[in-house]
Design a protein around this nucleic acid. Structure first.
Lengths: 288, 288
DNA sequence: ACTAAAACGCGTAGGCCATAAACAGTAACC
DNA sequence: GGTTACTGTTTATGGCCTACGCGTTTTAGT
């Protein structure tokens, strides 16, 4: 009735199409909550919680991220967190998006190929810097603002190309997939190398990497276990092709620096994208 | 001091090269245990345990795989499992390898490209059939017999190519990475579609997919949430490229059947591999 | 100014989970 | 027959997430 400050229930800045009901988690992700407040101003905030959780994950891995540990880190009791975060699942989603804020800006004027390579490399670097990101449970949650911003940058790189947007999205998706796989493999081989160094030094499995000799880790052969297993248990009749291929490969292969591995994958995938673009006529044919 | 029954530490059946000490988990994986036995013959076996665990994961997801549930399934107490498996981590590794036994045989006479495509597709299909495989924690564990067999098949496909084995391994690794990413993306969008159908039908989040209409899931748009979020919260100033790209894309894009998505990625990656092989001179140049 | 509602942070408690340690029974070896 | 190794079990510990209900604090509305 009152004409001033009517507390209309619907609060839609733009008239959203079908007014689909979004999960509360998504609304919080996009900072769309806080319509009105009456109680005491919160001493704790979701950002603080997420920040503490990220610090914890950086320092001790995702397994160390428990509500109790986070609460301890921010100086509250575990249950206090639930006023700002609906549960652990939502917290993990928020962590994932918060980390994406660290991604750099990609220059859009260097051509599509250089741009996509930079975009991909930045994401791989992020995954290597925070290995716990790849351990996050698969979730059907829609991306948050930072991640969307990152997708937007990819569209900026692809902007000069004459290609329908869904095909651009497919290309971006392909690169994103490659990122996931590449980072995972890199991390796994690093972990294997660390583990090998630990065993050789006779240290317990839980020894933090910081106490290990970085040079030894660098020099460790991540395939050591694999080779030992093969030479001990496997025979040429069950794995004929493998044995034939490696018969002429006794002491070769000093482990190539990891940068080369990354370049190999990126080059191959981008070559594939280039072939696709040529086929679609989105780039000139460059025939010699 | 004592000369009798010296507890010799070394017990090596064959004289293995550097006598590296492998983790017990690996030895069990390769079935190299059981040197002597004196007690009662075991009623339970590791294979039984792994089988029950896989059944459980297939039916209710990896989260349902707890030692207690497995024990219940095989009819023993939880602690009985520890006589056959060192812990849950080892169990997961064994599950991962056991599943790889279901992979088909790849015909090696259809050319490298067709062979690699079949190899990749089979692995993606496996991941889609058992989504929990992708939730397995990253592990530095060396592969088991079945997985090595699978790698051997890839080497069989690549056998005619004149390429050093480490480069072949890099190619295989690239495809394996792609598999991981592709399966993960497919599963995520499927999960999003399921979740959307659940919400539209007003069912609780935990409703099993079996109670949902498969046609509705098939028809659901996995980007629905994404689009709603964008249209409601995002504006053209923060995401300029995204908005420009999709400005001309109002109601297009009936979700393409998932097979096409898979084909897009595989084609691109194999095109990249082909470009690499050509560059290396491993296949004829085929220039028109 | 007074009241009532709303939001805050906290304590308790319950139900999971993995697994360490000590125990009793069994079958092969010497 | 005694020893010994191996089996499955019982009991117990410490961790985890979170449902529920409590006092307290602040603001909106009268």
């Amino acid at each position: 009735m009152s004409t001033d400050t009517t507390p209309e229930p619907a609060e839609q800045p733009h008239d959203a199409p079908p007014a689909r009901e979004l999960p509360a988690a998504v609304q919080r992700l996009w900072g769309a909550a806080a319509p009105r407040r009456r109680g005491p101003k919160p001493a704790l905030s979701a950002a603080q919680i997420v920040g503490a959780a990220i610090d914890l994950a950086d320092a001790e891995g995702l397994a160390a991220v428990s509500m109790a540990r986070i609460a301890e880190a921010v100086g509250y009791t575990p249950m206090a967190l639930y006023r700002h975060v609906s549960g652990k699942e939502e917290l993990l989603v928020m962590m994932s998006d918060a980390v994406a804020a660290d991604l750099p800006d990609i220059p859009a004027d260097g051509g599509w190929r250089a741009g996509l390579e930079a975009w991909t490399r930045a994401q791989i670097a992020l995954g290597l810097a925070r290995p716990w990101m790849l351990e996050l449970p698969l979730s059907a949650a829609p991306p948050g603002p930072n991640r969307v911003r990152w997708i937007d940058q990819a569209f900026g790189v692809l902007r000069p190309l004459d290609l329908p947007p869904d095909e651009k999205l497919a290309i971006i998706g392909l690169l994103a997939q490659h990122v996931l796989g590449e980072a995972r493999v890199q991390i796994e081989s690093h972990r294997a190398a660390v583990q090998q160094v630990r065993r050789e030094a006779g240290l317990p499995d839980g020894t933090p990497e910081s106490e290990l000799d970085p040079a030894a880790v660098e020099a460790a052969n991540p395939y050591a276990d694999f080779e030992t297993v093969l030479s001990r248990y496997a025979d040429a009749t069950t794995y004929p092709n493998l044995f034939e291929a490696f018969a002429t490969w006794p002491e070769t292969a000093p482990p190539t620096p990891p940068d080369d591995d990354i370049a190999f994958g990126i080059t191959a995938v981008l070559d594939g994208v280039e072939a696709y673009l040529r086929r679609r006529g989105a780039i000139p044919d460059e025939g010699s």
